[in-house]
Simulated scan of single mutants.
Amino acid sequence: MYETLDIEINAAVATVWMNRPAVHNAFNADFIRELTAACKALDADASVRVIVLAGRGKSFSAGGDLNWMRETAVADAATNQDDARRLAAMLRTLSEVSKPTIARVHGAALGGGMGLVSACDIGIASTAASFATSEVRLGLIPAAISPYVIRAIGQRQAYRYFQTAERISAERAVQLGLVHEVVAPEHLDTKVQEIVVALLLGGPMAQSAAKDLIRGVAERGVDDAVLEDTAQRIATLRSQPEAKEGMSAFLDRRDPEWVALNAKADS
C-alpha cells in the first residue's frame, strides 16, 4: 500500500517503519501523504491498540528531504503554502491519534524528525540517538514542528535550541523531557515492548479520554470552568461499559475484558 512506509501489525501493536533509509527517512510529498493516511487508517482500525513509529536504516528521520525542499523553495506562493499545510496536517494527525503512540528512536532525529518524536505520546531513545532543530542553519525556522517541540521541552529551552541548532544527545533529550527513557541500543526494543505491555493493560476508551483530558486542561489555570470540565469528563466515563467492566474486574480480582482480548490476539 505504501512506498515510503512499511507497516507491521503484530497482535494489537502496529509498527510504522519509515522506509527511506537511503535518505535517512527524510520527508517528501509522498512520505507526508502516506504517513497522514497511515495514521488515519490505524486510528480507525479497532484491532490496533498501540502505534509505534520507527525508522529503517541508520537514522530515525533527518527531517525534510533536500530535493523536496528545493522544489518548494522555487514553487509559487500558493504551492509552497499548500506543501507547508500538508506537513502541518501530518504532524497534527500523528499528534491527535486517539491511541497511544510511541517513537522508537535509534539514530538521528533532526528537524522534522525531532518533530515526529515530539508529536508522539511517548519517546524511547537509544544512547546512539541524537536530536536537533537544525532549521536555522538552512535559513529556515522549525515552524510546523514548533507546537509539539515546545510542548515537549518548554519555551525556555526552545529559545536556545531553535536558535543554536545544537545537537542534543539522548541523555540531554531525557533531561529536557523530549524522550521518556534512554537505553543501550541492544535494549531499545525490550524497553519499547515494556511500555507496550503497560499500555495494553489500560482501557482503550480511557486512554483516548486521557489524551483528550491533557489537551483540555494543559496550560489552563485551576478555576471553576476547569473543575466543571474535569467533573463532567469523569462522570461521563464512569457511565460507559468500559469503566463498569474495569471496576467490576478490579473488585472481582480478574483481568478486564480488554486484557483478555489482547492475550487472545497475541496467542
Rank of each mutant, 00 (worst) to 15 (best):
E3D: 10
I7L: 09
E8M: 07
A12G: 08
T15V: 04
R20Q: 01
R20W: 00
V23F: 00
H24S: 10
N25Q: 03
I32H: 00
D43C: 09
D45M: 08
S47D: 05
V50Q: 02
I51F: 03
L53N: 02
G55E: 01
G57Q: 03
S59K: 00
F60V: 01
F60H: 03
G64D: 04
G64Q: 06
N67L: 05
M69C: 02
V74L: 07
A77D: 11
T79M: 02
D82L: 05
D83F: 06
R85P: 13
L87N: 06
L87F: 04
T93K: 07
L94P: 01
S95D: 13
E96I: 09
S98T: 13
P100H: 02
T101P: 06
I102Q: 07
R104H: 05
V105H: 01
G112T: 01
M114L: 03
D121Q: 06
D121V: 08
I122E: 12
G123E: 05
A125R: 03
S130R: 05
F131K: 01
F131T: 01
A132F: 00
E135D: 07
E135L: 04
V136E: 05
R137Y: 08
L140K: 00
L140H: 01
I141R: 11
I145G: 10
S146L: 09
P147D: 09
I150V: 11
R151V: 14
A152M: 07
G154K: 11
R156P: 15
R156H: 15
Q157I: 15
R160E: 14
F162Q: 08
T164L: 02
R167N: 04
S169L: 07
S169I: 09
A173N: 02
Q175N: 13
E181W: 10
V183H: 03
V183M: 06
A184N: 11
D189K: 07
D189Q: 07
T190G: 15
K191H: 13
K191P: 14
K191M: 12
E194T: 07
I195V: 13
V196E: 04
A198W: 08
L200R: 02
L201E: 11
G202L: 15
G202Q: 15
P204R: 08
P204V: 08
Q207E: 13
A209W: 14
K211R: 08
K211W: 09
L213S: 14
R215P: 05
G216R: 15
V217H: 14
A218K: 15
G221R: 15
V222P: 15
D223M: 10
D223N: 14
D223C: 11
L227F: 11
D229A: 15
T230F: 10
A231R: 12
Q232Y: 13
R238N: 13
S239W: 12
Q240C: 11
P241V: 04
P241T: 05
E242R: 07
A243D: 12
K244D: 11
E245K: 12
G246V: 10
G246Q: 10
G246S: 12
F250I: 14
F250L: 14
L251E: 15
R254F: 06
D255C: 12
D255N: 13
E257S: 15
V259N: 07
A260V: 14
K264H: 09
A265R: 01
